[in-house]
Simulated assay, not measured.
Amino acid sequence: MAKKEQIALRKQALVAQLADSRQMIDLGRAELKEKLQVKKQFRRLIDKKPKQVFYGALVSGLAATLMLKGSRKKKKSKVRKSFFRLLIGWVLLALKPIGKSYLLNLSKTMAVAQMKSLTQPRQPHLETNDYTDAPNVR
């Protein structure tokens, strides 16, 4: 009888420990979920350091404006190209689609070859025999 009572007490203790563990997991999950929400993180950052966020936004906006706007270039007068340069430009313009299709087909064949090499079964290594059953021969 005493043994059954000990088992029952042990079960109750394990059930209580399981409930505590589940509660700790739920709290940890909620905390992690809150930490991974970018919107809340951004709001917290703005609440904690509003001046630094404002100055950072100001500097990055100014830098982006300068980079996208570029420097103002003076208009140059048109320089006439020679006939030879025009001819080379037309030839390269005509060859561009051919080169693209060739390189595309080449990359496709290389990708197919790579996939085939990855999907082929590998050769198994030769197994070494253990000679534990054989008598010691000297």
Rank of each mutant, 00 (worst) to 15 (best):
residue 66 L to T: 06
residue 66 L to S: 05
residue 66 L to H: 07
residue 67 M to E: 03
residue 68 L to F: 08
residue 68 L to N: 07
residue 69 K to L: 13
residue 70 G to R: 06
residue 70 G to L: 07
residue 70 G to I: 14
residue 71 S to I: 13
residue 71 S to C: 05
residue 71 S to G: 11
residue 72 R to P: 01
residue 72 R to E: 10
residue 73 K to P: 01
residue 73 K to C: 02
residue 74 K to W: 05
residue 75 K to E: 10
residue 75 K to G: 02
residue 75 K to Y: 04
residue 75 K to W: 02
residue 77 S to V: 07
residue 77 S to N: 08
residue 77 S to E: 14
residue 77 S to Q: 11
residue 80 R to V: 11
residue 81 K to Q: 13
residue 82 S to F: 00
residue 82 S to A: 07
residue 82 S to V: 03
residue 83 F to H: 02
residue 83 F to E: 02
residue 83 F to Q: 01
residue 84 F to G: 02
residue 84 F to P: 01
residue 84 F to Y: 01
residue 84 F to H: 02
residue 85 R to I: 06
residue 85 R to F: 09
residue 86 L to N: 14
residue 86 L to A: 08
residue 86 L to T: 03
residue 87 L to I: 04
residue 87 L to K: 12
residue 88 I to P: 00
residue 88 I to F: 06
residue 88 I to W: 04
residue 88 I to H: 02
residue 88 I to A: 08
residue 89 G to P: 00
residue 90 W to D: 03
residue 90 W to P: 01
residue 90 W to L: 10
residue 90 W to M: 08
residue 92 L to E: 15
residue 92 L to K: 11
residue 94 A to H: 04
residue 96 K to Q: 08
residue 96 K to G: 08
residue 96 K to A: 15
residue 96 K to D: 01
residue 96 K to L: 14
residue 97 P to A: 15
residue 97 P to L: 15
residue 97 P to D: 15
residue 98 I to K: 14
residue 98 I to F: 15
residue 99 G to E: 05
residue 99 G to Y: 09
residue 99 G to D: 06
residue 99 G to L: 14
residue 100 K to N: 14
residue 100 K to C: 13
residue 101 S to L: 10
residue 101 S to K: 14
residue 101 S to F: 09
residue 101 S to I: 14
residue 102 Y to N: 02
residue 103 L to R: 12
residue 103 L to S: 10
residue 104 L to C: 07
residue 104 L to H: 13
residue 105 N to V: 12
residue 105 N to W: 02
residue 106 L to D: 05
residue 106 L to I: 02
residue 106 L to G: 13
residue 107 S to L: 10
residue 107 S to Q: 11
residue 107 S to Y: 05
residue 107 S to P: 01
residue 108 K to W: 02
residue 109 T to L: 05
residue 110 M to N: 12
residue 111 A to V: 06
residue 111 A to M: 10
residue 111 A to N: 07
residue 111 A to K: 13
residue 111 A to D: 03
residue 112 V to F: 08
residue 113 A to I: 03
residue 113 A to Y: 01
residue 113 A to W: 02
residue 115 M to G: 02
residue 115 M to D: 11
residue 117 S to H: 04
residue 118 L to C: 01
